[in-house]
Amino acid sequence: MIVVILSDFRLSTFDCIMKGALLVNLGSPKSPDAKDVKPYLDEFLMDKYVIDVPFLLRAFLVRGIILRKRPEKSAEAYKKIWWDEGSPLIVLSKRMFAKVNQQVDIPMALAMRYGQPSILSGLQELHDKGVTEVLLFPLYPQHAMASTVTIEVLAEELRKKHFPQMKFTNVPAFYNRPDYIRELANSIKKSLEFFEYDHLLFSYHGIPERHIRKTDVTKSHCKIDGSCCNTPSPAHEFCYRHQCYETTRQVVELLEIPEGKYSQTFQSRLAGDKWLEPYTDIEINKMPEKGIKKLAVVTPAFVADCLETLEEIAMEANHQFKLNGGEEFLAIPCLNDGDDWCKTVAGWINQWATAEIPV
């Protein structure tokens, strides 16, 4: 009799487990007006994983200096790319979410690290549907403090405070997963089908060099020289720089792009610190004098087009390239809500949901 009771208890406990997934992207201001851009920038730049200095210094830099003029300048940039439906990043993320949601059998929610919909609202939505196990899915191919880490840390803080019975499984960086590499390569190939390029540039979002050293689990491997990213090490599991170069290497190999016809750079830096080099804007401006007249640029640090891809690359970099003698410029779209990419993401979620293989 006791055995039967225990068996029934185990069965009911198992039945109480419900899996769900939370997709998380960066976020966007509510509107392209400075009044909405300012609080968004405050939330973003005051994140200790973005500007990783002591709080008082960070507050002085952000609220005492940067937010005095930056909101107006950023608002003008957002106005250039804003769609009738809203922020391109939010719109594209919602479109992707809708397609993925149709292909999975577990509850899902969409959230942004900054702005709305928030991670808290996403977790609450899943909780209200009875979800007890959450697949936390940062929509970043490469691991970095200012992207994956800040999402995981905030989500865990919210879980402990509001949903202590909930359990997380974190999706690791997928920069080298064969199906991701395939989708990225196919996307590039499709974009280049009718564009005879002289050079293909892989432009990744930049981060301060100190972030690389801070995420080095060995505390000694990452020297940011010409060899450490190519030397096997446990540090590579969390090294953004290595993961960017590895993404490029695998895509180039799959597409059979010859040496000399491609390169890699890092964009979007703040003044005052040493960021990963070479810098996208500087390298693009020098390309025409090197004979590169037809340039294609892909931005594999993002899965959805946003301010950094649509304004910084497709508009500003395009303008500067032609101003310096370039003739044709192609900004290759991100994966966005492409059918094959959405099918791939849904496949990863379904594999986890059915416990076929770990994420």
Results as ranks from 00 to 15, higher is better:
His199Cys: 08
Asn285Ile: 05
Lys160Asp: 15
Leu22Glu: 00
Ser187Met: 14
Glu157His: 15
Asn186Gln: 13
Ala271Arg: 12
Ala331Met: 12
Ile66Arg: 03
Gln103Ala: 08
Ile212Ser: 07
Lys38Ala: 07
Ile357Lys: 10
Ile119Ala: 04
Leu323Ala: 09
Gly206Asn: 06
Leu335Pro: 01
Thr13Tyr: 15
Val131Asp: 02
Trp83Met: 10
Thr354Asp: 03
Glu328Lys: 14
Leu22Thr: 01
Gly272Lys: 10
Ile51Tyr: 03
Glu259Asp: 08
Asp8Phe: 13
Leu295Lys: 05
Ala59Leu: 15
Pro32Tyr: 04
Arg68His: 13
Glu253Leu: 07
Lys274Gly: 10
Asn101Glu: 14
Cys342Tyr: 11
Lys274Asp: 13
Ala185Asn: 04
Ile188Ser: 06
Pro117Ile: 01
Glu253Tyr: 05
Ala21Leu: 01
Thr280Gln: 09
Asp36Thr: 10
Pro208Leu: 11
Ile151Cys: 00
Asp305Tyr: 10
Leu22Met: 07
Ser220Ile: 11
Arg159Ser: 01
Thr309Lys: 06
Gln165Asn: 15
Lys294Phe: 04
Pro232Ser: 10
Met46Asp: 03
Met145Val: 06
Ala155Lys: 08
Leu192Asn: 04
Gln243Asn: 01
Thr218Pro: 01
Lys79Ser: 09
Ala173Asn: 03
Ala111Leu: 08
Tyr204Gly: 02
Cys222Ile: 11
Ala314Ile: 03
Asn324Phe: 14
Leu89Lys: 01
Ser121Gly: 06
Leu23Glu: 00
His221Gln: 09
Met1Trp: 07
Ile5Ser: 12
Ile66Tyr: 06
Val252Leu: 13
Leu110Arg: 02
Met18Lys: 14
Thr132Ala: 11
Pro138Glu: 04
Arg269Asp: 03
Val3Ala: 11
Trp275His: 05
Lys69Asp: 12
Arg68Ala: 14
Glu156Ala: 14
Ala146Cys: 11
Gln142Trp: 10
Ile282Ala: 11
Ile332Arg: 12
Lys99Tyr: 07
Met315Ile: 15
